[in-house]
């Protein structure tokens, strides 16, 4: 039985290898040598093409040899709520990244932790309490103890700022 998942992975790997090979073409060898910056990327690209090709062959061999129909694996039921949670969590992380400098570490992180906790089913006040306490504690550990220069919030006066 062929696996459509393997077919897709194989195709992606094969195409990825070809793209890497194309991107590595501009790199010439070092002066007086046959090797240079393009050597490893080209080797990885060749490996990826071979592996991708092998996966594609393995996935389609039963169909090619006529020894079995191409059958998809049993489809997992799509949990729409789960997918929305996943998208929202990704959005929260991207938002956190974008807001770290403008807002500073504490406000941005409170929003992130609170948002993730609410997505995981906590009530808003539990999420808010968790977000504030954990953010302040983590900030204290990293800024006060480990001297990590986390993005500051000018309008928020905290110890160590």
């Amino acid at each position: 039985m062929a696996r459509r998942g393997d077919l897709l992975i194989g195709l992606i790997t094969l195409v990825g290898g070809l793209v890497l090979f194309a991107l590595a073409r501009p790199f010439g060898p070092m002066p007086g040598q046959n090797y240079g910056a393009g050597t490893l990327p080209r080797l990885v690209a060749v490996l990826a093409v071979m592996v991708g090709g092998a996966l594609v062959f393995k996935a389609t061999r039963p169909a090619l040899t006529g020894s079995g129909a191409t059958v998809a694996e049993p489809v997992r039921p799509v949990d729409r709520a789960g997918i929305l949670r996943l998208a929202a969590s990704f959005g929260l992380m991207v938002g956190h990244l974008l807001l770290l400098r403008p807002l500073g570490f504490v406000p941005a992180s409170v929003l992130l932790v609170g948002g993730i906790a609410m997505l995981l089913g906590r009530r808003w006040w539990e999420a808010a309490l968790l977000a504030i306490l954990s953010t302040l504690a983590i900030r204290w550990v990293f800024v006060q103890w480990l001297s990590v220069p986390l993005p500051r919030t000018d309008w928020l006066i905290l110890p160590g700022t």
Binding site: M93, H96, F105, S109, L112, V113, G114, I116, A117, L120, G121, R122, E126, L130, A131, S134, T135, I138, F142, L146, V148, P149, L150
Partner: peptide
């Protein structure tokens, strides 16, 4: 885990930040 995971995530983000500042 609904309380633990957001905190772990924040630790990981700050840890990643700390590598390259």
């Amino acid at each position: 885990q609904s309380l633990l995971m957001p905190v772990i995530l924040l630790f990981c983000i700050v840890g990643s930040f700390a590598i390259t500042n």
